[in-house]
Design a protein around this nucleic acid. Structure first.
Length: 280
DNA sequence: AATAGTATCAACCGCGATATG
DNA sequence: GCATATCGCGGTTGATACTAT
């Protein structure tokens, strides 16, 4: 819900995701209810309404999803952030059960961490290119691989590069908070698995100096890796491809081997390392 | 086993937008 | 039109867990 654009469903009513909230003056009946509640339960928690609300929204709500951010969710976050920037609540609308806080934390602790390790600013063109042309396609490959493995016996032949979009779009249509009639609106999204830049990209809008040359990445096969080798060199003779092999680049640290915490798993790492060396 | 360093995430804070009297 | 209350957002902080030495 966008509070700035609150819609009313009746007099003094505010439409929220879960319910209609009443606003305006308190009635005598409501006063009695409150008095009765306090007399039974006491003043209770000594928490502000704001704190209670936050606790409910971020933790107690029955539909809050917990656990690792999945590959599909990671891809969505990267996609949506590239379009909308730090509009966490808007991004969260497309990840059911995930809170804006959780997505924000994911971005800060995982994505920004990687940018830092690459000696890149998370808002730099270099890092965005790395995400767009490298990590996101790799995430798609991993999602595809996982899906292919899961469904190998049933539908191995149905999964191809061309079907990735189809694989994800049904999910997105579910994720989309707006109904189908708004699918073509400016707020609706279609997952973009192509490494080709989105012309409506948020960053293109806000970065006056960013004049993307999309043909560069299309025409130059090696350019898929070029952003890494050319941009994210930390300048001291080592490059990201050679760094942190025994640290958090490989494995997700939770011991389950799913790599769910990291943008790059071991496979990605050696892929990048190979490509980087190839381009040296 | 103890300590230091790092990662994670829930909670807090301040702000702007909006509703209401 | 103004003052006040409320809401929700995004940035930041602090407690805790985890890992390395």
């Amino acid at each position: 819900m966008d509070v700035k654009g609150r819609s009313s469903s009746g007099p003094n009513m505010v439409n929220t995701e879960e319910e209609d909230l009443k606003r305006g003056p308190w009635t005598i009946e409501e006063d009695f209810k409150l008095i009765n509640y306090i007399s039974i339960h006491g003043k209770g928690l000594k928490r502000t309404g704001k704190s209670c609300r936050l606790r409910w929204l971020n933790y107690l709500r029955p539909d809050v999803r917990r656990g690792n951010i999945t590959l599909e969710e990671q891809l969505l976050i990267l996609q949506l952030h590239s379009r909308w920037g730090n509009r966490w609540s808007k991004i969260a609308q497309y990840l059911p059960g995930r809170t804006d806080n959780e997505i924000k934390n994911y971005w800060r602790t995982r994505v920004q961490k990687h940018a830092k390790q690459l000696k890149c600013d998370v808002n730099s063109k270099e890092f965005k290119d790395t995400m767009r042309y490298l990590w996101m396609p790799r995430l798609v490959e991993r999602i595809q691989a996982a899906t292919t493995t899961d469904t190998a016996s049933a539908s191995a032949a149905t999964t191809s590069n061309a079907s990735i979009e189809q694989m994800l779009l049904p999910n997105l249509s579910y994720y989309t908070p707006d109904n189908a009639s708004t699918a073509a609106s400016s707020d609706s999204i279609g997952i973009q698995v192509s490494p080709i830049s989105d012309s409506t990209d948020y960053y293109n809008d806000v970065s006056a100096n960013y004049n993307p040359n999309q043909d560069y990445f299309q025409a130059n096969h090696e350019s898929l890796i070029s952003p890494i080798g050319s941009y994210c060199n930390n300048g001291d003779g080592t490059d990201f491809g050679l760094m942190e092999l025994n640290h958090h680049w490989v494995g997700d640290g939770d011991g389950d081997g799913d790599g769910s915490h990291n943008l790059l798993n071991a496979e990605d790492f050696f892929f990048l390392q190979h490509q980087f060396n190839f381009n040296m």
